[in-house]
């Protein structure tokens, strides 16, 4: 049970990262800020897990990393979405949408 929920969380982080990077390339800190700003911190994402996900996605070739200068003129590692990552994002958002639709349908049905 615990494992399955971990998987769910992992998959959630992946798709969130892909979505975040679909706007523009960002570094790890700003991704973390963006996600917590957007979700008002509801997901309670641990920052270490975010970096693990970033490196995993980089290995899969869905995002690509590179060094650049940050807004405060420091060296930071930026990530951008690759073509394969974008395709992945589309596929995963579709899955997510259907998943949440199904879940809410169940919840609404039980409310009846």
């Amino acid at each position: 049970m615990a494992n399955e929920s971990m998987e769910l969380v992992k998959g959630t982080v992946d798709v969130l990262i892909l979505k975040t990077l679909s706007w523009k390339p960002m570094h790890g800190f700003s991704i973390s800020e963006w996600i917590s700003d957007t979700t008002s911190g509801d997901l309670g994402l641990q920052e270490g897990a975010l970096y693990k996900a970033l490196h995993r996605l980089e290995r899969k070739g869905w995002i690509a990393g590179g060094w650049g200068l940050s807004e405060n003129n420091r060296r930071a590692k930026y990530y951008r979405l690759t073509a394969r990552g974008r395709a992945q994002l589309q596929a995963q958002s579709e899955t997510w949408r259907r998943y949440s639709l199904a879940v809410s349908r169940v919840l609404e049905a039980s409310a009846l």
């Binding site: 523009k24 390339p25 960002m26 570094h27 990393g65 590179g66 200068l69 940050s70 807004e71 951008r80």
Partner: peptide
């Protein structure tokens, strides 16, 4: 908040 990154290489990191 975040600036445009300047990738060291256009196509790929060494």
């Amino acid at each position: 908040m975040t600036g445009e990154p300047e990738f060291r290489r256009v196509f790929r990191l060494p």
